[in-house]
Amino acid sequence: MSQQPRIVFEAIEASRSFDVSKGPLQRVLSGEGRRILRAVDSVSFGISHASTLSLVGESGCGKSTMARLAVGLYRPTGGEVRFEGQNLSAARAQPALRRKMNMIFQDPYASLNPRWRVRDIVAEPIRAFKLLQGPKDINDRVGQLLTQVGLSAKDGEKFPHEFSGGQRQRISIARALSSEPEFLVCDEPTSALDVSVQAQILNLMRDLQNRYGLTYLFISHNLAVVRHMSDRLGVMYLGRIVEQGPAEAIFRTPRHPYTRLLLEAIPDISSVGRRRTPVGGEVPSPIAPPPGCTFHPRCSLANERCRTEKPEHTRNDDVLVACHAVQEGRAV
């Protein structure tokens, strides 16, 4: 690998808000204003070629919205999302670039059209981008793709319901690979699977990355899975990245109090019989996030500044942390 790896995907201060107001009439009657949900709030990161960046966080932190921003299913309401050095909408307008990105979804039951045969599901990107002509060539390629993900070419004749969850996720991966992508957005690809099957899928994704130099944006709530998969890591809380950097560095010395909370909270098989004092509190509503640092109501280090002033990212070694306590050296 060269010294300066190429940045494949980049988010620059990307934001996405949703208007979750009631209808105009109801708003007038109840005297409420507009309600804006800031699902993603000025998020910046870059992913270099053939590496994996993971976004991790609890439900409602905006990681799935970020995944959808990354493949153009949502447009950013602020900032920019860039692919191969171009603005994402411009990049997606060109089929040659659009085919280089694809997505793997969480629910293997909802992500395959139940009325389509597997071979048509896998061939859809090939047909859409006219990568191959003629039914024989397409069929051969589909067979090859299915074999590659550990299924057999004959499985193309079947319908999705004839497969188990893990096998369906393999079909999903075969479909994602069929457009010969460089960049794959994986939205919780194994969280619906049993652990032994999860291991199969994670191994497969790693093998494919090594073989084809794939770049992954990996979304998960499971820190152990994230640790296994990622080169870099971003921890999200209420729409913002609170800590990001090389995954190893963060797991070795988590700095942000929220990252520490998450790591502390995860039950791990190595912690037989562990006693702990769990952190209290719940994630507040993203429609009315707390002022200042959004994590302050749950944070034991919070002081007056945390309650009023939004923390900026500061660099500690290779890790960016948005926390006043870390910046002031209060978090030890």
Binding site: Q167, A199, N203, N222, L223, V225, R227, H228, D268, S270
Partner: peptide
């Protein structure tokens, strides 16, 4: 099953997998 669970403690190159279902 134990080998297939990714751990927070250490990162391995490949998880142990049980083939099939």
């Amino acid at each position: 099953l134990m080998g297939s669970i990714p751990s927070l403690e250490a990162r391995v190159e490949r998880l142990r997998q049980i083939d099939g279902a």
